[in-house]
């Protein structure tokens, strides 16, 4: 019997992104490099996400995020950041079609009760895109 096991509540991929999250906002000074911002969730529910996007020629070329929440909330925001930027960016059109299920698939699944966390990620992104488009309109 193994006494020091590696049993973990989440998938390997969730653990990877939770322990080594990618593209979170390290420094407030970075914010000025981004032209879209979205925020969803609230502290009462225990999950709150902020998302910054940098759009050039209708393509999201860089992102940053901040998340208050559980491991799956942190991992799903980090995964979303990876999905958006891994192929040198993603067209806004395509980004708008991303769903919580897409994020969840890439994370190797989430426990049923945690699914709401990953849904927040794509909502934050949508808010950021909306904000970018409004900024464009208002010049």
């Amino acid at each position: 019997m193994k006494l020091e096991g590696n049993d973990w509540f989440y998938s390997k991929e969730v653990k990877k992104h939770f322990m080594k999250p990618q593209k979170f906002l390290k420094n407030e000074n970075e914010i000025k490099n981004f032209n879209g911002y979205g925020k969803v969730g609230n502290m009462k529910c225990g999950d709150m996400m902020e998302f910054w996007i940098k759009v050039k020629n209708d393509k999201i070329i860089d992102v940053r995020w901040k998340t208050f929440g559980c491991a799956s909330a942190i991992a799903s925001t980090s995964m979303l950041a990876k999905m958006l930027t891994e192929k040198k960016g993603m067209k806004i059109e395509k980004a708008l079609t991303l769903t919580g299920t897409d994020i969840m698939k890439r994370l190797g699944g989430l426990p049923k009760i945690k699914i709401h966390c990953s849904i927040l990620g794509d909502q934050a992104l949508r808010e950021a895109i909306k904000n970018y488009l409004e900024n464009q309109k208002n010049g």
């Binding site: 939770f18 322990m19 225990g46 929440g69 559980c70 491991a71 909330a73 942190i74």
Partner: peptide
């Protein structure tokens, strides 16, 4: 839950009153 799981990675077992767990 985030604190708990990071402590867990360091071998420390605790519990939380967070809704997430």
């Amino acid at each position: 839950e985030s604190i708990l799981l990071r402590l867990n990675e360091e071998g420390i077992r605790a519990s939380t009153g967070s809704a997430c767990s």
